[in-house]
Amino acid sequence: MRILLVEDTEDLAGALQKHLRTTGHTVDWAQTLRAARQFWVVEQAAYDVVVLDIELPDGSGLTLLHQIRQSERSVGVLMLTARADIEDKVQVLDSGADDYLTKPCALEELDARIRSVARRHLTRPQNVRLVGRLAYDPTNRTVWADEHQVQLRTQELKLFEALIESSGWTASKEQLQSHLYGLDQEGSNNAVEVHVSRLRPKLKRYGLAIQTLRGLGYRLIETDDAE
C-alpha cells in the first residue's frame, strides 16, 4: 500500500516510516501541513491510506482532512493524536476520519488499524467469488454483501478463506489450524473451535453455515434461513 504519513516529530516519523516500509508499504512523509497538501495535490490518486497527525506546526491536521474529504478520491484516513483532550476524538470522527490512534501506540495496533482503514475504502471489484449471498475478493482479501463490506477479523477471514478453498468439502481441524497460525506457529488447541463459533453468527445472516462433522472437520454450506 502507498501511505502518506503526516507527522511533525522527526523522531517518531522516522521510526514509523521504517516500520511501515519493513512491512511492505510505500511511505511518503510530510513534516508540515503545507508539505502534506502538496503531496496530496500531486499524488492523491496513488494513496491508499493517509496517517495524519492533528497537531502540526503550521496548522491542524483537520484542515487537510477536510480537503481530502471534499475531493473525489475515496481514501482511508487514520488520525494520530497526542492530546489528552479527548473531545478531539469525537471531533475527529465527526470530521470524516475513518479511525484515530492515540500516541504512543503499539506498532501492531497501528498495522491493524491501517489495514482496516484501507479496506474500508475499497470498491467492490468484478473478479469475486460468490458464496451464498456473500462475495469474496481474494485480491484484497475482502468480503462483500452487495455493495457493503462485511467486517471480519483477520483470523475469521483466514478461517473463511480456508473453508471457501475447501469448496464444499470438509476441512479438517488441523488444516484449519495451520491455515490460521502457519505451520511453525503453535496456536491454542481450541482456537479453531473458538473462531468457528465466532464466525458462525456473522455468516448466518447471509445464508451460510459452518457444519461440524465430528472427528472429521468443518464444512461451509448454504442454508435457506437467510434473513
Binding site: 516529530t9 521510526a15 504512543p104
Partner: peptide, 8 residues
Amino acid sequence: TPIAAIMT
C-alpha cells in the same frame, strides 16, 4: 510525543 518515539 517523545514517549511515542521511544516506544516505536
